[in-house]
Design a protein around this nucleic acid. Sequence first.
DNA 1: GGTTGAGTGGGGTGCCGTTG
DNA 2: CAACGGCACCCCACTCAACC
Length: 288
Amino acid sequence: MSVDEMDVSSEWSWEQDKAFESALVNHPEDAPDRWEKIVDDVPGKTIEEIKQHYELLVEDINQIESGCVPLPSYNSSLEGSASRSSDEGAGKKGGHQNSGSNHGTNTSRSDQERRKGIAWTEDEHRLFLLGLEKYGKGDWRSISRNLVLTRNPTQVASHAQKYFIRLNSMNKDRRRSSIHDITSIDNGDVSASQVPITGQTNDSEANSTGKPGKQVPPASIGVPSVGIYAAPTIRQPIGGPLVSAVGTPMNLPAAGHMVYGVRAPIPGAPMNISPMAYTMSHTSVPHR
DNA sequence: GGTTGAGTGGGGTGCCGTTG
DNA sequence: CAACGGCACCCCACTCAACC
């Protein structure tokens, strides 16, 4: 059973989901009176409802981990260098593929080899956040293996590094919105509750201005029209693959089981970690 | 209105330190 | 000794402001 199915019955509004998920992140498992605190953050819900909602979330995670929800391997040809595989080489020192020479030094290493990392999708980031909550900071390997299957531990660690840097700098003025502004695992939440994104208020309007923005990882990123990263339209309701960790009200077709953006795979079928444009507001705030 | 330059964000990679 | 995580650095893509 997936969260989305339950949502209907329990009637969780999107706002409640947002609040719930933000609360989950804000109040770690070891936090005393966690549920009470979460209840405070989620208006209109009882502790029982919240616990039930949480169980659903955990259940989904467990299914992923247990293999009940087989995950296709992403390291197919379509994943360029970036995700060289979730388990391959995951390593640092030997893990890097293009070992060649020291980076930086050279240019010898062709740009093609090094570059073009595939931008993290919101889904991936959410899974990352989930992993952070579940495994804690530092256990990048588990996060990579169990949740963010499309990224190897090194990539997860790298992403985490930037993420935390970003968090730390949240107090300062931020100029641009970024995926790291998402600090909760819900759908499209920019966790404004925690720290507003630099006062970037031009969310919807801005997005509609037509500015592409790097938020939408274009296929041009180096991954030729890969389904995974095919960019949907910003703020477009993701009707399919995109699923947030917890049942955010999404217009999901009654698909097979889908957990965290991973639908029961059809061999050979494109993954559905669908690339989704970050829904965060797009900045237009002068940054200079 | 279009072009150019500067600034910033973000992903990848390598080195170093720590731990088992 | 090997594996892993953290940190620092590099480079590219993107955005926006300034200039023509």
